[in-house]
Design a protein around this nucleic acid. Structure first.
Lengths: 157, 157
DNA sequence: TCATATATAATAGGCTCCTATATTAATCAG
DNA sequence: CTGATTAATATAGGAGCCTATTATATATGA
């Protein structure tokens, strides 16, 4: 009974499947350039010599604080970013890009943009707009689901 | 220049964002039942006393072989599955569910179905159909991108 | 002022995925 | 029948995400 297990008809399952294939493709292309997908938001956020705290980068990337701490640890080890203590507040450190990281911003954005074009090559302009609208509705519903479970911590975002 | 960094207008980026929030929500709900998201396809595939090889489960779940090996290792440790040598072929082992895992199939499917309903609560039936069509187009494009890079190994799927 | 509360970051530990490589069993060629 | 190839699984190691906890610095309040 209940043999109607068809993940192909569940939008959330399909999104997960596409995400995995997409992520694999993105990682392959970025790895060839010495980058990884999670680094791109950090590189972009720190463009033009910007100095941000870990907390700010955490919010931008939309991950939890320890995830960002680990990512920054790897990026520092790879010589992509630098941390300096904030003279105003001893708890913070200000994060900025190294010279080495500068050319990678364009590269990374280019790869992502290119893959986005490829992935949506079968869609018309109207299709793209419609897709973004539908995904937006789902994002909204899921976010409100999450908030109703949280202890108010995320309610500030 | 090129300050038009708007991940919100890139379908692939939006899919990634939704996936992460969705995955977090699914994991929270499943963890309360002693389950995790990656286990569901395995539980469902092994329903009704089915015995499958690791390779078959790998294809069903759509992950790489070492990922499935690790998952099965954890599930075996947790007493959810059992491995027995295939008498026909010494390389294979046949995997099946334990008694303990049986009631979890319904639970897991229920959680996923419930979240899918919640996530798409803002969509009309027509919206859902349209969303699946658009996601299908993307899946197709991405898959063909992947295949053109592979060494023919995945061409059999 | 001093104790408590809050904010930021680091650490510990686990899951899920990946690539690359090793192991073992079966098959196939000569 | 034996050596080479193929097939199934296991192992090693790393990225990236999470929750939970700890360490440290700042702010707050009696």
């Amino acid at each position: 009974m209940q043999n109607d297990w068809q993940p192909g008809s569940m939008p959330t399952a399909v999104i997960g499947q596409i995400h995995r294939v997409l992520h694999k493709l993105v990682d392959q292309r970025l790895r060839a350039e010495g980058l990884s997908a999670s680094q791109i938001p950090v590189l972009v956020a720190l463009r033009d010599g910007r100095k941000l705290t870990q907390k700010e980068l955490t919010a931008i990337a939309g991950v939890e604080q320890p995830s960002m701490a680990q990512l920054l640890g790897r990026m520092e080890k790879d010589g992509l970013i630098r941390r300096e203590p904030d003279p105003q507040d001893g708890r913070k450190s200000l994060i900025s890009l190294t010279e080495q990281a500068l050319p990678l911003i364009r590269t990374g954005r280019g790869v992502l943009h290119h893959i986005d074009i490829e992935a949506t090559s079968g869609l018309s302009d109207a299709d793209r707009v419609e897709l973004l609208r539908l995904l937006g509705l789902i994002a909204q519903a899921v976010r409100s689901d999450m908030l109703s479970l949280d202890d108010g911590d995320a309610a500030q975002q």
